[in-house]
Computed example of a mutant assay.
Amino acid sequence: MPKHVIIIGGGIVGLAVAERASRLGHRVTVLEKESGWAQHQTGRNSGVIHAGPYYRPGSLKAQLCTAGNRSMKAFATDQGIPWQATGKLIVATAEHELPALEELRRRSEANGVPFRVLDADEARSYEPHVASVAALRIESTGIIDYGAVSRRLAEMVAERGGELRTDSEAVSIAGTPDGVVVSTATEEFRGDVLVNCAGLHSDKVARLAGLTPSARIIPFRGEYYELVPEQRDLVRGLIYPVPDPELPFLGVHLTRMMDGSVHAGPNAVTALAREGYRWRDIRPGEALGDLTYPGFLRMASKNVGVGIAEVRRSWSKGLFAKSLARLVPGLGKEDLVPAEAGVRAQAIRRDGSLVDDFLIERAPNQVHVLNAPSPAATASLEIAAHIVGLADLE
């Protein structure tokens, strides 16, 4: 029996859920507080179609990313959205990084991700300017414009008669015996099912709906530079470091984009607003709530050195360039120009642990996506299928 599905959030995950539900014959309403689609995490990331070497085998991230790598490419091809198969190098630049690189090799094998183990000379056959003692070559990684994917998903929903409401922030949510009522400043929407895909505000929306989520979103700003045009030839595809296994961030890396530019970044510094794209973007109420949250305080106390290093790199173009020069020697601060920053919605539990998997919680007639950072864009079509199943919409 067709249902009315109300989706809060017009990023790529919310729009993918809307497309999937409308394709199954359900009535769909998408409420987005901004004036356009994919304005935050979706529209401000590196545009990478991830392959899945990083994620714990058996986790939702591992399962949905690996499947999403295939389904995103197929969707883009079917819909005429350009994408490129670039491949990626994950490089160990020192001997002490080899055990972590071996763990990535093990996870790649367990997750069904095609890979090759390379020595330094073999790595340079892919990226002639890279520095490494060893590397993993992940051939199935690609790049795409996720904003274009989101716009096409919105068009498909509209073609099936779905309601797509921008400038429509949910201000109250009330459960009913058989559904939900969502109100904006000007309208009221009655539905059978609520799906919360609000990203940076997903925990707030969950609390608005009467839930007590098991984690809180803490915003981490990722700052980017671009290589100046005359240095773009130093990077053919994607060059990543071996990441810190204790953190969910992949480290500052180099990414050739769809337009031919090369992005460098991101770092990871605590933002002072959920949409804090610059240091001067401060919302005192949000910052106070996030920075005094017991989970954040416990996490921060365990990572003081890392946090200080990230702040220093944020304020110093020279230190940012030094991180990049570990991957491609010779890069200097004169080779970098500022680019648009993003903010990652990272869920942290009260005990200080960073949620390292997608986190989805349910209530009667409600599904809440409470942790969906990278690789959520890659996996968005698969996340949508998973959510539709949880919401009994199939």
Results as ranks from 00 to 15, higher is better:
254 L>R: 04
263 H>T: 02
235 V>Y: 05
251 G>P: 06
268 A>S: 13
232 R>H: 06
261 S>P: 06
238 L>Y: 00
265 G>M: 06
230 E>K: 11
255 T>Q: 07
264 A>C: 15
234 L>D: 01
246 E>K: 14
264 A>I: 13
239 I>N: 08
234 L>T: 12
250 L>S: 03
246 E>R: 14
251 G>N: 10
267 N>T: 14
263 H>L: 14
260 G>S: 07
259 D>H: 07
260 G>N: 10
231 Q>G: 11
241 P>T: 07
262 V>N: 05
259 D>Q: 09
242 V>K: 00
257 M>C: 11
252 V>I: 15
257 M>R: 15
258 M>S: 14
256 R>A: 05
241 P>E: 09
255 T>P: 05
255 T>E: 04
238 L>S: 01
237 G>I: 00
241 P>C: 12
266 P>I: 05
246 E>P: 00
252 V>G: 04
232 R>L: 02
268 A>I: 13
263 H>Q: 12
230 E>Q: 14
238 L>N: 05
249 F>Y: 07
242 V>R: 00
255 T>H: 11
240 Y>Q: 05
238 L>C: 01
234 L>G: 06
243 P>E: 11
240 Y>F: 05
233 D>Q: 09
241 P>F: 10
265 G>H: 04
251 G>F: 02
242 V>G: 04
250 L>H: 00
230 E>L: 02
246 E>V: 06
232 R>F: 03
236 R>F: 04
268 A>P: 09
262 V>E: 09
247 L>Q: 12
255 T>M: 02
233 D>G: 13
260 G>K: 14
268 A>E: 13
258 M>Y: 03
246 E>T: 14
251 G>C: 07
244 D>L: 05
243 P>T: 03
265 G>S: 06
235 V>N: 07
243 P>I: 03
250 L>D: 00
264 A>R: 07
249 F>K: 12
231 Q>C: 07
244 D>S: 13
265 G>W: 03
235 V>S: 03
